[in-house]
Amino acid sequence: MSDPELEWAGPEGRVLPVVTAPASVLGAVGEEVDPTDPEVVRLAADLVSTMRVSPGCVGLAAPQVGVGAQVFCVDVTGHPKAATTHGTFVLCNPKIIEASRWRPGREGCMSVPDLTGDVKRAGRIVVEAVLPGTGEPVTVATDAFEARALQHEIDHCAGKLFLDRVAGAHAIYQRKVYL
């Protein structure tokens, strides 16, 4: 299922380096942004371009490229765990307004490249946000893997890593490398 008003149709961006823990920007709450600011539109494009060239990446938040802002992109299209998909989209200043069906699941992160962990997240969420460029308010209702990806990126905007949400050291694993 695709939602045309969400689908990213902005300019092509640059590929930016991804910062890794313990970079301080990853632990700081991002600033709310003016979604119509040309710098925010450029950042949105850069996030999408960086996500697209990063193998296995389904989302990327501004703090992960060193910018303390509440902006992120997501695209779970084609992922085997995805049920609902809205294509490639970017949201600014997101707020989760509904969350239900909590379940544990394994997560990884480009900013924590050597580890994965079991994190309990809502299986259904509703998010309110604004779109970069237009500033148009949107409400995104989603489930399953896309809901997990949105929560993971919203956490980045709030200065949290998935490691902050694991149940304990027993729920953190060395990332498997497949040759």
Score class of each variant (00 low, 15 high):
residue 34 D to N: 15
residue 139 T to A: 10
residue 164 D to V: 13
residue 63 P to Y: 07
residue 19 V to A: 02
residue 3 D to R: 15
residue 49 S to N: 03
residue 21 A to T: 11
residue 151 Q to C: 14
residue 121 R to T: 10
residue 36 T to M: 10
residue 108 G to E: 15
residue 22 P to M: 05
residue 89 F to I: 04
residue 27 G to K: 05
residue 125 I to T: 05
residue 172 I to V: 15
residue 33 V to C: 05
residue 171 A to P: 02
residue 145 F to Q: 00
residue 68 G to V: 09
residue 127 V to A: 11
residue 65 V to Y: 00
residue 17 P to F: 08
residue 60 L to I: 11
residue 97 I to W: 07
residue 48 V to L: 04
residue 171 A to L: 07
residue 42 R to W: 01
residue 179 L to D: 09
residue 139 T to E: 13
residue 7 E to T: 10
residue 83 A to R: 14
residue 74 V to W: 13
residue 82 A to F: 13
residue 101 R to Y: 11
residue 18 V to T: 13
residue 107 E to S: 09
residue 43 L to Y: 01
residue 115 L to T: 09
residue 3 D to V: 03
residue 75 D to L: 00
residue 66 G to M: 06
residue 113 P to D: 13
residue 81 K to V: 05
residue 121 R to I: 15
residue 8 W to Y: 15
residue 117 G to Y: 02
residue 85 T to K: 08
residue 104 P to S: 09
residue 59 G to M: 06
residue 93 N to R: 04
residue 49 S to Q: 14
residue 19 V to F: 01
residue 31 E to F: 09
residue 162 F to L: 05
residue 176 K to Q: 12
residue 170 H to V: 04
residue 60 L to A: 14
residue 161 L to Q: 14
residue 48 V to M: 07
residue 141 A to S: 09
residue 131 L to D: 02
residue 47 L to E: 11
residue 19 V to H: 03
residue 11 P to W: 03
residue 91 L to H: 04
residue 39 E to P: 06
residue 60 L to V: 13
residue 106 R to D: 05
residue 139 T to V: 14
residue 132 P to H: 08
residue 28 A to Y: 06
residue 163 L to A: 06
residue 143 D to A: 15
residue 173 Y to P: 02
residue 1 M to C: 12
residue 171 A to V: 06
residue 18 V to W: 04
residue 131 L to M: 06
residue 141 A to C: 00
residue 160 K to F: 13
residue 129 A to Y: 06
residue 8 W to M: 06
residue 33 V to K: 01
residue 148 R to N: 08
residue 59 G to C: 09
residue 5 E to G: 05
residue 141 A to Q: 08
